[in-house]
Design a protein around this nucleic acid. Sequence first.
DNA 1: GCCGTTTTTACAAAATCTTTACAACTCCGC
DNA 2: GCGGAGTTGTAAAGATTTTGTAAAAACGGC
Lengths: 126, 126
Amino acid sequence: MELAPTFVNSSESYRDAHLEVDFGHKTVVLDAGHLVLTRKEFELLAMLVQHAGDIIPRETLLQRVWGYSREIRTRTLDVHIRRLRRKLGAYSGQYIETIFGIGYRFQPFRSARHLQPRLSQFAIGA
Amino acid sequence: MELAPTFVNSSESYRDAHLEVDFGHKTVVLDAGHLVLTRKEFELLAMLVQHAGDIIPRETLLQRVWGYSREIRTRTLDVHIRRLRRKLGAYSGQYIETIFGIGYRFQPFRSARHLQPRLSQFAIGA
DNA sequence: GCCGTTTTTACAAAATCTTTACAACTCCGC
DNA sequence: GCGGAGTTGTAAAGATTTTGTAAAAACGGC
């Protein structure tokens, strides 16, 4: 058997010096250790990682990860971002940045770097 | 059933340090001991083993092992998983993992897991 | 009918997600 | 610099969803 099991998404993945995200197998490896993320945490991370470098508005994240209920005015998103950051440990600051008033942005790992100016460009479609 | 006709690729099998599954003859050996599984138990195990390393959604298991009755909202699958685990004894934890909210995954035997920086083992629960 | 297997049922337990209540922080005009 | 309005960060509690189990009922072949 083996013919392309439908449940195995073609394994695309993201990878940099410390982090590896396999979208198909839904696995995350951080510095050789497997990270255990919950479903929402993974979806959120995947969403950010797949648009690395782009700012993703809170609203877009809420729509895509939480369905179209753009009616969540609680801190749900923040709470998930927080858990994600905690699991990313020491690298969290490097990877997930908060774009005040807009949303979040995942940045691929880079050795030495400082924060960018401010208000930037492209945000993925809302 | 049984008589595994020759046209059945009876040579196909899975094997690791402790477990051996012969798909053609539908036999299972665990640490030199012959495991007796019922038909459903075997099919379930086979399904998982043949896709070792991949997460198989509950729905997929229900479809392939139980026919197309997609939405069985009973605990049938869980009950079978439980019996399988029981028969796998001490290795059950190592072999069959639950991917919360999605399904299950069979993981080939891995010798000691010492060399790991930040613990955690498997993948996301997505 | 008997017996081994499979499915249901009915809860218990566990894992995850959301809400709440504040604290902390940013931005911006004064 | 200061202060206020608005935004994000956190911890903890509350809800909800999903999975685990045990026991009993339902099947099916002999």
